[in-house]
Amino acid sequence: MFFAALSIALSSATALRVLPGFIVSPLPADRYVVAGIIAIIGMVFLYLILREKSIAQSPTIRLLGATTYPLYLLHGALAYPILENSSLLGSTLARVTAAAVLVAAVTYAFATQIELRFVPWLSRRASVVLAPAKEVS
């Protein structure tokens, strides 16, 4: 437990130190947002590891898993225009909140309305297309 907490703290501290080298023109809040996200994800994983019950069949966990890739794909395209346009909203907190809400809503909609419906269909199609040909006797 101690080493997991140490790992989370060091990961967050490293993000604070090296983030400006990874983002071309970081906003002042970027360092703290990234460090906070790393800390939250680390704590969630620590909690999940320490749980006695399996979470593999949880619908909530399946939904969160389904949102990770759309979140990765969409966060920059959706969040940065809001974060960089200071005239859209007044404060940095308002911009970060608006960007987070927009990204979360679009990611959720993509995961539930497109991805979770399309993947089973695609899997069925792939199994038909990729099935071995039957031998003719």
Score class of each variant (00 low, 15 high):
M1D: 14
M1K: 07
F2Q: 13
F2M: 13
F3W: 06
F3I: 12
A4H: 06
A4R: 09
L6W: 01
L6G: 09
I8M: 07
L10W: 00
S11V: 07
S12N: 06
A15F: 00
G21S: 11
F22Y: 12
I23L: 15
I23V: 15
V24W: 01
S25Q: 13
S25I: 09
P26F: 10
P28F: 05
A29W: 04
A29I: 13
A29H: 10
R31S: 07
Y32N: 09
Y32S: 08
Y32T: 04
V33W: 00
V33K: 06
V34E: 05
A35Y: 03
I37S: 03
I38E: 01
A39L: 06
I40K: 04
I41R: 02
G42S: 09
M43F: 01
M43G: 02
V44W: 03
V44S: 04
L48D: 14
L48R: 14
R51T: 04
K53R: 07
K53P: 00
K53I: 04
K53T: 02
S54I: 08
S54F: 01
I55L: 12
S58M: 02
P59W: 15
T60Y: 10
T60R: 11
I61V: 15
I61W: 08
I61A: 07
R62K: 15
L63N: 05
L64P: 01
G65R: 14
A66K: 05
A66N: 13
T67D: 04
Y69N: 11
L71I: 07
L73E: 07
H75T: 09
G76Q: 06
A77S: 03
A77V: 13
L78K: 04
P81N: 10
P81H: 08
P81Y: 08
I82D: 04
I82F: 02
L83P: 03
E84H: 06
N85Q: 12
S86D: 09
S86L: 08
S87L: 02
L88H: 03
L88Q: 07
L88Y: 02
L89I: 14
L89W: 02
G90M: 11
G90H: 07
G90P: 08
L93W: 11
L93D: 14
A94R: 14
R95N: 08
R95T: 09
V96E: 03
T97F: 08
A98V: 13
A100W: 01
A100G: 03
V101L: 15
L102R: 04
L102C: 10
V103M: 03
A105W: 03
A105I: 11
V106M: 06
T107Y: 01
T107D: 03
T107R: 02
Y108W: 13
A109S: 14
F110M: 15
F110T: 10
F110W: 12
A111M: 05
A111F: 00
A111Y: 02
T112F: 00
I114C: 08
E115A: 10
L116T: 12
R117F: 00
F118G: 00
V119H: 05
V119E: 09
P120E: 09
P120Y: 04
P120W: 05
W121S: 10
L122K: 04
L122D: 06
S123C: 03
S123I: 08
A126K: 07
S127F: 05
V128G: 00
L130P: 00
L130R: 14
A131H: 05
P132A: 11
E135V: 11
V136R: 15
V136A: 11
S137Y: 09
S137I: 07
